[in-house]
Computed example of a mutant assay.
Amino acid sequence: MIRPVTAADLPAFHTVMLAAGMDPRSSWNRTTLEGLEQSLFAPGSGGFVAVCGGEVCGCVGFRPDREDTLTLNRLATLPDMRGQDIGAALVRAVETVAAERGFRRVLLAVSQFNLEVVPYYERLGYVQANEIYAFASPGSPVPVVLVKRIVGIGSTDLDNRLAEITQKLAELKKLDVNHLIFGSEIHRYELHPPISKEQLGKTAQSFGIDFPEDYAQFLTTVGNGGAGPDYGIFSLDESLELCNTLAIGREFPHRKAWQPLVENLSDGTPRGQGKIPYYINNPVTELDRKKQRAWNEFYYDGNNSSGSMCIGEQGCGHMTLLVVCGPERGNIWVDSRATNYGITPLKKDKSGTTFLQWYEDWLDQAVEQLRGKND
Rank of each mutant, 00 (worst) to 15 (best):
Y126N: 02
N130W: 07
L162M: 08
E116T: 05
I233V: 14
E198L: 09
G139T: 03
K148A: 04
T156Y: 10
E131F: 02
P229N: 13
E198I: 02
P138L: 10
L158G: 09
S184E: 11
A170S: 14
D159L: 05
A227D: 13
H179Y: 15
K148C: 07
Q128Y: 12
Q167S: 12
S155P: 01
V145L: 07
E190W: 11
G152Q: 12
Y120M: 14
L162G: 05
A163E: 01
S137R: 02
D237S: 13
L180K: 08
S140K: 01
P194I: 04
L172Y: 08
G152C: 08
E238N: 06
I150Y: 01
G201A: 11
V177W: 10
T220F: 07
R161N: 09
Q199F: 10
G228F: 01
I150P: 00
Y189R: 03
A136C: 01
S140T: 00
L162W: 06
S155Y: 05
D176Q: 07
D230V: 00
L158N: 09
K174M: 09
I186S: 14
I233K: 05
P194K: 06
D176T: 03
E213W: 07
F182V: 04
L236F: 10
E198N: 10
L158A: 03
Q199N: 13
V127F: 15
I132N: 01
S155R: 01
A170R: 03
R161L: 07
A134S: 15
H179L: 12
K197W: 09
R161G: 07
